[in-house]
């Protein structure tokens, strides 16, 4: 169904190239642009069919903006988004509509993302009506099947969102995203608003659905323990840039970027014995403003390894070992040969 325009996207469902979003800051009577919030800057990655890629980072690193550009809820400033080989970066709303079937989103806040005046049936049934999908046994039946798929009861069809708990609401949001049998789901912090015991239920549900329906996920998250559990590959973002992108195991066992190392060491470990013998790295200060990011490496202002070159030259995101991309002048955990260069 897709006309392949680029040859290198065989196994990649989604390719993001040099994706950039600058939100203009306007001032004065004429609303002249006086600057820009550089939310996302030259982000490049691809997502293979059936895998889970997680975007992690702290608030303000651009992970949500990236997710919203993939779903075209935000218009990119530059770069490309290719879905199934097709450039969807600047498709008009009309041309985009059929593609909305293929890309769906799950939102963080199960309270804010469901219309309180609509019943569950209306919420989950709207995608069918909007996309004019033929449902052999009627929309109601299709909705009830979807509800069962996500572990809700078909009798919930006529209930309102306020009658459900947080975990159940998140299931309704998942049902809505699944209604059209999408290929790609962008899940923006799907479990961070839930309690631990419920969080595990929803994570298991997402994993089951992935293997049953062959879904591809882009997961946006900040909880590194959850990310380790759900992801196949992980992209770490800092201030609008991808600083490290690799397989899950490589990232957690051999992180190379100093920011990744600091991030991992800051995660509190639920083990009282580890309280004393951990060598934790404490970052000082705050993330700089994305309006005026530091020149060179954006992490250089907080990095303990930063040298002059870090403050002037932007480190490119390159493969240090096969499949392990890092943007750093002085990466850790690489073979001694590559690090002795000063």
């Amino acid at each position: 169904m897709s006309t392949s325009t680029t040859p290198d996207t065989g196994s990649d469902l989604l390719v993001v190239r040099d994706l950039t979003k600058h939100f203009p800051i306007r001032k004065g009577l004429l609303q002249r642009q006086v600057g820009a919030v550089q939310a996302v800057d030259d982000v490049t990655f691809s997502v293979r069919r059936g895998e889970t890629l997680s975007l992690v980072g702290e608030s303000g690193c651009g992970k949500t903006t990236t997710g919203r550009m993939i779903t075209r809820l935000i218009e990119p400033t530059g770069g490309q988004v290719l879905l199934d080989g097709r450039d969807i970066t600047h498709l008009s709303a009309g041309k985009l509509r059929p593609l909305r079937r293929d890309v769906q989103m799950i939102f963080q806040d199960p309270y804010g993302s469901l219309n309180p005046r609509h019943t569950v049936g209306t919420i989950v049934g709207t995608p069918y009506r909007l996309q004019k999908i033929a449902t052999p046994n009627g929309v109601k039946r299709a909705v009830q099947d979807t509800l069962e798929l996500v572990g809700l009861s078909p009798e919930h069809y006529n209930r309102y969102p306020h009658e459900f708990s947080g975990g159940q609401r998140q299931r309704i949001g998942i049902a809505r995203a699944l209604a059209l049998k999408p290929k790609l789901i962008v899940a923006d912090e799907p479990v961070s608003a839930l309690d631990v015991s419920i969080q595990a239920q929803v994570i298991n549900l997402l994993e089951d659905l992935q293997s049953e329906l062959g879904l591809t996920y882009v997961m946006i998250a900040h909880d590194l323990s959850v990310v380790r559990h759900v992801s196949d590959r992980v992209a770490v973002m800092y201030l609008g840039k991808v600083v490290e992108l690799t397989d899950r195991d490589a990232l957690y066992e051999r992180p190379m970027h100093p920011y990744t190392i600091a991030l991992l060491s800051a995660v509190p470990i639920p083990d009282t014995k580890r309280r004393t013998d951990r060598d934790q790295i404490r970052l000082t200060g705050d993330v700089p403003s994305p309006v005026n990011p530091p020149p060179g490496c954006r992490f250089s202002t907080r990095c303990w390894k930063a040298q002059e070159v870090c403050r002037t030259d932007v480190p490119p995101l390159v493969d240090l070992t096969p499949g392990h991309q890092v943007a750093c002048h002085f990466p850790e955990n690489v073979d001694a040969v590559t690090t002795t260069v000063v």
């Binding site: 595990a200 323990s225 639920p270």
Partner: peptide
């Protein structure tokens, strides 16, 4: 029920059933 970074990654989480 919680995923842990200091343990071998479990294939599946074991949630507490119900609410």
């Amino acid at each position: 029920s919680m995923p842990r970074m200091d343990r071998v990654r479990a294939e599946r989480l074991r949630p507490i059933p119900g609410q």
